[in-house]
Design a protein around this nucleic acid. Structure first.
Length: 303
DNA sequence: TGATATGTTATCTT
DNA sequence: CAAGATAACATATC
């Protein structure tokens, strides 16, 4: 599922391939995910890309921004003359646009030869959970989703300075994490997935981090010892960094900006491994429901 | 064909 | 009233 490592993978792709291009026009094939009007962004230049938790913000030169959430199955795929014939993952399909393409950003690359000027950014979404909101840049941080976002674990550095700056946002420290858990009765797994407390953790990394830290997902947040909190903090960083290095997890539809899959799903510890053997002790992995989400753990290793 | 997947928000309960 | 728990929502897939 797109969590912090996946969304950061997309952010870097947009930074590398799309920033600097100008929006020539926007084609809206399915209006549901696109909130705003194309007129507000036509002609604007893409000047930067930020990420807050699992959300993306594309900044434009005309004081508007695009706030984007790809939720479960959204894809942002870039194409130009050079990449037009590059092979797409089967998760995208053989061609673009396809039946899941809802928005096409038709772009112009500056200073390019005439036959290389036209570039495209496709927004695809199988389940249409995701959204793209056109907003004045000054209002983006007022969206409840961004405004209420908790600090995120330091998996990748928050970017300072021009371009991807994240003004006013701080990273999750071990000390702050300890304070967060203090006196909280919520079960530790739903707790760390609550975006208003910590930004960026979803179901895959919550499961794998708790396994790595040898902590049962059903434990209450306040029951963790100082040592366990430290282990969990480090495990969250460890599994998300690993995933980022693997290009993210392509469990459902996730692909990077070039339409290629990540590899973390081949390295996951317990996520989705019901009935399989624990990588540490070979006990059969159990699956329960916590907060309506699939929860996977080893009853022998995790205490 | 209906059960299933999960990120987020809304609503209910204690 | 706040914290915590649960329901609802979107919809293609098997």
């Amino acid at each position: 599922m797109p969590e912090l490592p996946e969304v950061e993978t997309v952010r870097r792709g947009i930074e590398k391939y799309v920033v600097g291009h100008r929006i020539e026009s926007v084609e809206i094939l399915h209006p549901k995910p696109f909130q705003g009007s194309a007129e507000q962004i036509n002609g604007a230049k893409i000047v930067g890309i930020k990420r807050i938790g699992k959300g993306l913000i594309i900044e434009l030169s005309n004081n508007y921004s695009l706030a984007i959430h790809i939720k479960l199955t959204g894809q942002l795929v870039y194409r130009d003359k050079k990449t037009k014939n590059a092979k797409l993952s089967t998760k995208v399909g053989s061609q673009l646009p396809n039946k899941f393409t809802h928005v096409i950003f038709k772009l112009l690359r500056p200073n390019a030869k005439s036959d290389e000027r036209k570039t495209y950014l496709y927004y695809n979404d199988q389940r249409r959970f995701g959204w793209i909101k056109v907003l004045p840049t000054s209002e983006v941080s007022q969206l409840p989703f961004f405004k209420n976002m908790g600090p995120e674990p330091p998996v990748v550095p928050l970017r300072q300075g021009s371009g991807g700056t994240m003004e006013g946002r701080s990273l999750l420290s071990l000390e702050y994490f300890e304070k967060l858990l203090e006196g909280k009765n919520t079960k530790i797994k739903p707790f760390i997935m609550d975006q208003t407390r910590i930004g960026g953790i979803g179901n895959i990394y919550a499961n794998d981090a708790l396994f790595d830290a040898k902590i049962l997902p059903t434990r209450s947040a306040k029951s963790l010892t100082k040592l366990e909190i430290k282990r969990l903090f480090n495990s969250i960083l460890k599994v998300m960094k690993k995933s980022f290095e693997e290009g993210g997890a392509s469990e459902l539809s996730f692909v990077n900006i070039l339409g290629q899959e990540g590899n973390y799903q081949n390295h996951s510890l317990v996520y989705g491994k019901t009935g399989k053997k624990c990588p540490r002790c070979k006990t059969v992995i159990k699956r329960i429901n916590l907060g309506g989400r699939g929860t996977f753990y080893c009853e022998n290793c995790q205490k």
